[in-house]
Each structure stands twice: as structure tokens, then as C-alpha cells.
């Protein structure tokens, strides 16, 4: 470490400081914490702290612009006694279960097709991935119009093909149809993630395994069952876990498409939390609803750490 000129005292002191900082930055015990501090502060202030507040709100009778009191688990009890919440609870499982199952089945099929030799690979992949990159709130708006009660293009097509009886269902106004619509849009938007990720898993399976299975007389079905599926398992596990937490906590699609209606039949935790917490101002109850997402988060994190990523960082 050469210090340029030996001259006045002040520059020398400054140079010495410079050298010390430089040396400090070369020490891992210093540089490491220094590098993670910004991220750590951000996450403490804007993730950990709000989480503690969410728990506090959930245990209090907070109302917008009013001092609050500790009420224990009264919010949670009140929620269980409300029809809207019980409906939401059920919706969340129906919505997540059906959506993830459909995305998985369709995703595997689509990935298998995409892994075949194709003429326009890039264009096709681009088209497949498109629903995933377009702002969900805006594309869902397009679906609202497609499901419109009077001018639905879905109904028009169904009627033209003879698949529906006139006048066709009011998709967003009837409870089961509304749930079907919400699931459809979620599958539409989430399928690319499944397909592209599973495709990456498919491509990484060594060709020799298929050749070996083929020379042992395995047909396409048994090759899929005994070679592809077992080797895809880790990828499928990750994709399912990811999708479960983000489907369960979905907000955008339901908010734009149905606002939770008709009569709460499509509400999910996030949309109900917003309605109770912001629109009616009962923040305590709203926070309690949001916290119902937490056990699912814990499960997904646990499963990922336990089975999928033994070594996290």
C-alpha cells in the first residue's frame, strides 16, 4: 500500500484514513454486513415492522382515525361468526385448489408440447408467456368486458357454436359462474409460469434416459410415467408451492373482475381484508383477515426449506 508523497501532515492523515477504509472494505467481516445493511434496514422497516403491526391490529379494535384497545382474539372469533368470512375461507380453498390443479395439468401438457421440435419456437414461447407479463389489473379488465352481461364475446362464441343455450350465463352475476370466471382468468395468467418453468425442467432431463427406456420397450405413456414425471418432481414441487401462496393471496383478478361478488361468492382473503379494513374502516378485523394468509405462507416456506432447498442461501 504505497502512500504517494510524504508532505504535509493533513494529506497524510487523510491518506491514512483512506487506506484504513480501503483495508476495512477488504475484510469480509466488515464488507459483508455493510453490503447487507441497506436490504436489512428496508426489510426490517417495511416488512418485519408492518408484520408486527398487523398482529397488533388484529388483536385490537382498531378503526381508522380512532385510538384502539387490545381485544385479544375477539376479531378472529367475530370473523368466524360472520357469513362473509366463512364464505371467503371456503372460496380461498376452492379457488386455490382448482386453479393450481388446472394450471398444473395444463402446464405439464403445454410444456410437453413446447419441448417438441417446433417451427416457430421463439414466437410460440413469446405468445405463451404474454399473459404473465402484461399488467394483471389491465388484462383482467379485458376479461371483465369478455364476460359482460350483455355483450359477452364468450357467450356470443358459445351461442354461435351451439355450446350454450340463449341467452347464455351472466358470468359475473351468478355465484358459480363468477367463481368459474375468476378461476379461468387466474389459470390464464398463471399458466405461462407453470409451462415455462416445467419446460426448463423437461429440457434438463438427459436424453439417454429416454433412449434407454425406449430400447427397453417403453412406450410414450410409460416413458412419461416412469422417466419424465419422477425427474420432474422437484420442479413440480417448487412450482406448486410458489403458485399456491400467490394464488391463495391473489387480489388483482378478483378485485377487478367481481369485487368479491355476487354476495361474497368470489371474495378471497385479500379482497375481503381490503373491503373490511379500508372501505368500512375496521382495520383490526381487516388485518386479522390478512393474517389468515400467514399459515399458508409458513407452510410453503417450511416445505420449500425442508424438502426442496435443503441449503437455502
Amino acid at each position: 500500500m504505497a502512500i504517494g508523497h510524504i508532505g504535509l501532515a493533513a494529506p497524510r492523515a487523510r491518506a491514512a484514513l483512506h487506506v484504513r477504509v480501503r483495508e476495512l472494505l477488504d475484510r469480509e467481516w466488515f464488507l459483508g454486513p455493510a453490503f447487507v445493511t441497506p436490504a436489512l434496514l428496508l426489510l426490517l422497516l417495511l416488512v418485519a415492522y408492518p408484520f408486527v403491526m398487523a398482529v397488533y391490529f388484529a388483536l385490537s379494535d382498531s378503526f381508522i382515525g380512532r385510538p384502539s384497545h387490545f381485544v385479544g382474539i375477539r376479531n378472529f372469533i367475530a370473523l368466524w361468526e360472520s357469513d362473509a368470512f366463512r364464505q371467503t375461507f371456503q372460496n380461498a380453498f376452492v379457488f386455490t385448489g382448482i386453479s393450481v390443479a388446472l394450471k398444473l395439468g395444463l402446464g405439464i401438457s403445454l410444456a410437453l408440447l413446447l419441448s417438441q421440435p417446433l417451427w416457430f419456437t421463439r414466437a410460440i414461447r413469446g405468445a405463451v408467456l404474454l399473459p404473465w407479463v402484461i399488467p394483471t389489473a389491465l388484462s383482467t379488465l379485458g376479461w371483465v368486458w369478455m364476460f359482460d352481461s350483455l355483450y359477452s364475446v364468450v357467450n356470443w362464441t358459445g351461442l354461435a357454436l351451439g355450446a350454450l343455450d340463449p341467452p347464455g350465463p351472466n358470468w359475473l352475476g351468478q355465484r358459480y359462474h363468477a367463481m368459474a370466471a375468476v378461476i379461468t382468468v387466474n389459470v390464464w395468467r398463471g399458466l405461462p409460469f407453470f409451462a415455462i418453468t416445467i419446460l426448463a425442467g423437461l429440457v434438463s432431463i438427459p436424453r439417454e434416459l429416454y433412449e434407454a427406456a425406449e430400447s427397453d420397450g417403453a412406450g410414450p405413456a410409460s416413458r412419461f410415467w416412469y422417466v419424465t414425471l419422477p425427474l420432474l418432481k422437484p420442479v413440480l414441487a417448487i412450482v406448486i408451492l410458489f403458485s399456491t401462496i400467490f394464488t391463495f393471496s391473489d387480489f388483482n383478478i378478483v378485485f377487478v373482475l367481481t369485487h368479491g361478488g355476487p354476495i361474497n361468492s368470489t371474495h378471497l382473503f385479500a379482497t375481503l381484508a381490503r373491503q373490511i379494513g379500508l372501505e368500512t374502516g375496521r382495520i383490526g378485523e381487516g388485518a386479522a383477515i390478512s393474517l389468515y394468509l400467514f399459515p399458508v405462507l409458513v407452510f410453503v416456506v417450511w416445505a420449500q426449506l425442508r424438502y426442496v432447498r435443503r441449503q437455502v442461501y
Binding site: P33, V47, P50, I245, F251, R274, L293, L297, Y313
Partner: peptide, 28 residues
């Protein structure tokens, strides 16, 4: 880099990566 707490921080980042925005929007 190797330093005290690197493992915990890695796990913390991974966990927050999975936290959905709809969990914390009210207190935030």
C-alpha cells in the same frame, strides 16, 4: 462473503421473497 449471520440473512431474504403483498398492505 463469510460473516456472522449470513445464513440467517439468506433465509430471511428467501422468506420475504415469498411474502405476498396482500399480507401486509393494511399496516404498510
Amino acid at each position: 462473503l463469510r460473516f456472522v449471520g449470513v445464513g440467517a440473512f439468506g433465509t430471511g431474504i428467501f422468506v420475504t421473497y415469498l411474502v405476498p403483498t396482500s399480507l401486509l398492505f393494511l399496516p404498510l
